[in-house]
Design a protein around this nucleic acid. Structure first.
Length: 112
DNA sequence: AGTATGACAGTCA
DNA sequence: CTGACTGCCATAC
């Protein structure tokens, strides 16, 4: 394959650093990478994260806290099950108490 | 080099 | 309030 590493690698590393019971959004990751408009790129990177089983992509949701790409996981509610396994309540594909579970890399990785 | 896609976000109707 | 389109950035073909 080609050297597509770069944006993807950054996304992977950030997602990997998401602690247990926490979630983040594409926009935040994109913003952390310096391209807040490339939120779609983040999602696409996570799609490729399938080759990186160390990337808890199930902890990454959209701005509304919705499990947008759960269908891309396993075609089932696997993503939701994983989140619930982390004490994260999910209803109708949306994370409950999302703002409380929200993990901000800009704060956690920059202020630490 | 150009076109098409992508798990989004934001704005308009 | 709900639905649809455009915009933006990067990768793949």
């Amino acid at each position: 394959m080609m050297k597509e590493e770069g944006f993807f690698e950054k996304v992977y590393e950030i997602v990997r650093q998401i602690p247990y019971g926490r979630v983040t959004t594409y926009g935040v990751i994109a913003n952390f990478l310096g391209t807040p408009r490339s939120a779609r790129m983040v999602g696409w990177a996570l799609n490729n994260s399938g080759m990186d089983n160390s990337v808890p992509a199930h902890r990454v949701v959209n701005k509304n806290g919705i499990l947008t790409g759960k269908h891309y996981f396993n075609g089932t509610n696997l993503m939701q099950q994983l989140l619930e396994n982390e004490d994260i309540k999910v209803e109708d594909n949306q994370i409950i108490d999302f703002e409380n579970k929200f993990w901000n890399p800009l704060k956690e990785l920059d202020s630490q």
